[in-house]
Simulated scan of single mutants.
Amino acid sequence: MITRSAERDALLLWLGSRVGLLVATLLGVSLQDYLGKWRAWDAGLFVVIAEHGYDGVPGRPPDAGLPAFFPGLPMALRLVYLVVPDWALAGLLISLVAGAVATIFLARLAVFEGGTGWVAVLALLLFPTAVFLAAGYSESLFLAFAVPAWLAARQRRWPVAAVLAAGASCVRITGLFLALALWVEFAASRPALRQAPWLAVPLLPLAGYSYFHYARSGDWFAWKHAQEAGWGREMVWPWESFGKTWDAAMGGDEFAVAFRMEIAGVAVAVLGLVWLLVLRRWSEVVYCGLQAGALMTSAYYLSIPRSLLLWFPLWVAIARLRHRWVIAAYAMVSGPLMVLNTVRFLTGAWAG
């Protein structure tokens, strides 16, 4: 049974962590400088799309990588900017509100699955790349749609699940993997077939976004080709991807640490998939496994630790553990890494 105390605990953890992050990172920095620190890496690219569209900043060469970013967050940025006329602050506020929604429903999902709500939320908030839940990135907004969608699916409320999953598909290509996992969950539940057409709804945003770029540039798969043009993320054999990443991780430049984190992220992903397989969570294996497959067959590992934030089945699985020492050990290992990664991001270093 889902209780109000689980929701309260989740919200307190989320807001408390945001206050702690604000205090820890605002000391000795002016407000304008502080906001500027958060407009780094992809957060700045989301702002460019929100402000100027996918053609990029007028007068500058077009950025071929922009179509890789789905329109959900840029649209939200434009709306919030009407009320809060600062792009960086608008991004932070979206992540703040979306993160609150995501953590509340994560706690609900954990309780529904027989776990402890606050443990699932704490596991998410202490993950090494949790800084991206606060930044003007798409992770919090995606989870704000995806976690309630999954809870609705587990409760067999298929229309609600489909509409929420469509919202997730507006935010990230990961919504496609969520849609496929919903199909598996739907088939396993043996529902009335009259509800099956709802499962097509999460695919509509992807179709619409593909058509938008086809009308704009003649390319139905502009979002995929943007990954290749902007970051060189072509599909290769898994061992080729690992080899290239390993070589980069053993280098001596500033990105070597980040690539070591990528390899560690792959290890966590593989262990997590094995865990879900042992638990026979087949639909969740589909959701996480498709993401892992896509990321581990890229030309090199990129943003795998950050993508693990979206693996809500892992946080729920942790919440179902009855051995509290495991959770304490996780917190002691992951917490300091999260702080380190937050410092890296706010000092301009690549952090996932």
Rank of each mutant, 00 (worst) to 15 (best):
P74F: 03
Y81N: 14
L92M: 13
T103N: 11
F112I: 01
A98I: 02
T103K: 02
V111L: 08
P85A: 03
L106S: 07
L77I: 06
L106D: 09
L106P: 08
G99C: 07
P74T: 03
A88C: 09
A102T: 03
A90H: 02
L82Q: 12
S95E: 01
T103G: 01
A110D: 13
L96E: 11
L89Q: 08
L77C: 06
D86S: 15
A88I: 12
V101L: 14
I94C: 06
E113W: 01
G72E: 07
G115N: 13
A98Y: 00
I104P: 01
V111R: 15
I104H: 07
L96G: 05
A76N: 03
E113Y: 01
L92D: 03
G99I: 09
V83Q: 00
A88H: 10
G91M: 08
F105K: 02
A107Q: 09
V83W: 08
S95G: 01
T116Q: 13
I94K: 01
Y81F: 14
T103C: 15
A100Q: 02
M75G: 12
E113P: 05
V101K: 06
F105N: 10
T103H: 01
L82Y: 00
V101S: 09
T116L: 11
G91Q: 07
A107C: 11
Y81A: 11
L109Y: 13
L106E: 09
L73P: 01
R78K: 09
W87Q: 03
T116A: 14
I104Q: 13
F105V: 04
A110H: 10
W87D: 08
L73K: 01
V101D: 12
L109V: 04
A88S: 15
A98G: 03
A88W: 10
V111M: 12
G114S: 11
M75I: 14
V84C: 11
V84H: 04
R78F: 00
G91P: 07
G72V: 05
G99S: 13
